[in-house]
Amino acid sequence: MYEFKYHRPETVRQAANLLIKNEDAKFVAGGHTLIPVMKQRLAAPPHIIDLSHIQGLDGIEIKGRSLVIGALAKHAEVATSAIVGEAFPALAELAALIGDPAVRHKGTIGGSLANNDPTADYPAAVLAMGATIVTNKRKLKPEEFFQGLFTTALEPDEIITKVAFPLPKKAAYIKFRNQASRYALVGVFVAKRPSDVRVTVTGAGSEGVFRVEAFEQALQKRFSPKALDGLTVPAEGLNSDLHGSAEYRAHLIGVLAKRAVEAANARA
């Protein structure tokens, strides 16, 4: 790891100011993406700004018809929260599938979204639900927030403070994990929302999370696995690597989408 200076702000404002003052500084919350990358010397930020001691950013609450999760809420907290389990069980299940128990004690929802890893789990839920990403400056919709591989709309002095998920009527997330890294080889999130159906895919797209509109239209007519019979996703534009070809991932999307609809329907 290269040398850096460590900062520990106590408020979002202090953190934003530190970022403005120190060019090429990086935020760290749980550190489970940034620290490994720094150890490999793939990143060498001269300043590290530790967000993990800012108070009041880890709440989980229902506000109106939304589930609002603070950016510093850890995966383990979302996975075991009674509020999430009651209002949006698919999200609790998704959080319980991230990494392993020790990783879930450190990793945060804000960190996962800000990193926008194309194989991360949370982006699938955020795009499927049309969740609002709230920062210290503005509110962003997923379509404007996610901008491709490890890229988001966040500006240099912008910090995610919370995420507001509108609640689905039914939803489920099915993940086919890479056995070694535990990231999604393919993950499919299916949500029956009050007005429509959304199907999102993580792990497979070379530009990150995306929607499968053909599946959405079919499920809109009939929310059943059978509605997806005969429908396929083209392999073009999907990731291909030693873990699976683009064709394999395309096949998995169809299989996992059916399983997700089945799982969503199995919820009372």
Binding site: Y6, R8, V28, G31, H32, I35, P36, I48, D50, S52, A76, D100, P101, A102, V103, H105, K106
Partner: peptide, 21 residues
């Protein structure tokens, strides 16, 4: 997981945690 310790009572991987944190 060979490096697992408890930080504030919770299991974490100490190879992926900075001592300053």
């Amino acid at each position: 997981g060979a490096c697992v310790v408890h930080l504030d009572g919770k299991a974490v991987k100490s190879c992926t945690t900075l001592a300053v944190m």
